[in-house]
């Protein structure tokens, strides 16, 4: 009797899973300054190897809508990983509005408007105090995809 009930339960969820159409893939990179032949220095996003304190790490989050309907109010959330510090102005994403939190995701604001409380007063938050990054995308049409990214420095 119990077995059957569990099976029914599993089946009941199956149709829902088919609607889970936006998926995310996160990739990490080791950001390395590479001197080019002409003497200029270019930032290269390389394989995430040989990470040591002080290094820059880039995270690229690829989203894709593999469903048949347009997803709206898409909000990508990423906490700044432990033992790293957000690099100022490094969050990017086409067609997205980027907001930040300095209080573990309780409230979000644009970088210029983000404040933290200190000695009873509000002051602008430092990049090192940012705990979460959020990209708000109005809509992602069926079959379309995009990337958002940010950089951190390993403490």
């Amino acid at each position: 009797m119990r077995m059957i009930k569990m099976l029914v339960g599993a089946l009941a969820f199956a149709p829902l899973m088919a609607f889970a159409q936006v998926s995310l893939t996160t990739t990490a990179f080791h950001i390395v300054a590479v001197k080019q032949a002409d003497g200029s220095v270019t930032e290269e996003w390389q394989k995430p190897e040989n990470i040591v304190p002080g290094d820059l790490v880039g995270y690229r989050i690829h989203y894709v809508n593999s469903g048949k309907e347009t997803a709206t109010d898409v909000v990508v959330n990423n906490p700044v990983p432990d033992n790293t510090e957000y690099v100022v102005n490094s969050a990017a994403g086409m067609n997205s509005q980027i907001t930040y939190s300095a209080d573990q995701g309780k409230k979000f604001a644009r970088a210029a408007e983000l404040t933290v409380e200190e000695n009873g007063a509000q002051r602008p938050a430092k990049a090192s105090e940012i705990t979460h990054i959020r990209w708000s995308i109005n809509s992602v049409a069926a079959g379309s995809s995009g990337d958002v990214e940010f950089k951190v420095r390993v403490k």
Partner: peptide, 24 residues
């Protein structure tokens, strides 16, 4: 150092869904 992104979105009909990336 691990990192996981999440996303929420709305489908026609108002269904809100949460999705997670794999952890890097």
């Amino acid at each position: 150092i691990s990192n996981t992104a999440t996303a929420s979105y709305t489908l026609p009909g108002g269904t809100s869904t949460l999705t997670k990336s794999s952890t890097v």
